[in-house]
């Protein structure tokens, strides 16, 4: 029997579930609109627009919910980046993923109560949650109310720039999603991490 840590409190799991479901809706409808074509329909356009808008608003609300608990609970500790020797630690982690895993080496920064992320995870999670998400949300709100956008930004349409930024950021977060899902299979067992985010308990190797 392996040791268990209670790492994912209820609020976090609720947020994670909402975020996961509605991000998938946004991803599918977003691709469907961006590459809309009369002969090839993923989601009917009007349905895609409506559900993209609704899901976007739900994601915004759940993001605010997340921020509230982030600032009021100790969960925030996982996001404190220590910059000392950061490069070296990142390199260690990357070396582990590229070579170490195959040799059944010990993970250099195993999950613990004080730090659930390894350095690489920490950097990407901070990047996604506090850089990419705000950009997505702000550009999304702007596109929902296009009259808010400045018409002309140094000769380029403001809506165009906003839409480009929105789509590119959405693309980056979708890349993150794929990586996130793949790395989730590298827990104690193939499905262990998927179980954890439902039960809240992390199984240590």
């Amino acid at each position: 029997m392996s040791e268990k840590l209670f790492l994912y409190p209820t609020w976090l799991r609720v947020w994670h579930a909402l975020n996961a479901i509605f991000f998938l809706v946004l991803l599918i409808t977003g691709i469907s609109m961006q590459y809309s074509n009369p002969n090839w329909i993923l989601v009917p356009f009007d349905l895609a627009v409506a559900s993209h808008n609704v899901s976007g608003i739900i994601i915004l609300i759940s993001y605010l919910f997340y921020l509230f608990f982030f600032f009021t609970t100790s969960n925030r500790r996982h996001y404190n980046i220590v910059f000392k020797e950061l490069g070296k630690r990142l390199a260690m982690q990357i070396r582990y993923y590229v070579f170490g895993v195959f040799k059944n080496e010990e993970a250099p920064y195993p999950t613990s109560w004080n730090m659930k992320f390894n350095p690489l995870q920490q950097i990407t999670y901070v990047g996604v949650m506090f850089v990419l998400y705000p950009v997505l949300i702000i550009t999304g709100i702007a596109l929902l109310f296009p009259e808010l956008i400045i018409d002309n930004f140094f000769g380029i349409g403001g809506t165009l720039l906003t839409a480009l930024l929105h789509a590119s950021t959405g693309f980056l977060v979708s890349m993150f999603l794929i990586i996130h899902l793949y790395f989730a299979t590298m827990g104690a067992t193939f499905f262990a991490n998927f179980k954890s985010i439902i039960t809240g308990y992390h199984e240590v190797h």
């Binding site: 609109m33 961006q34 590459y35 809309s36 356009f45 627009v49 380029i156 349409g157 809506t159 165009l160 839409a163 480009l164 789509a167 590119s168 693309f171 890349m175 794929i178 990586i179």
Partner: peptide, 28 residues
């Protein structure tokens, strides 16, 4: 259309399209 606005689905940047397909493929 771009001088005046942006129309969902009708405006795509070809360079960005290729870059995203390539990045995505490499990742997979």
């Amino acid at each position: 259309i771009l001088n005046e606005g942006y129309m969902i689905g009708a405006n795509r940047n070809l360079a960005l399209n290729y870059v995203s397909v390539i990045l995505f493929g490499m990742l997979l």
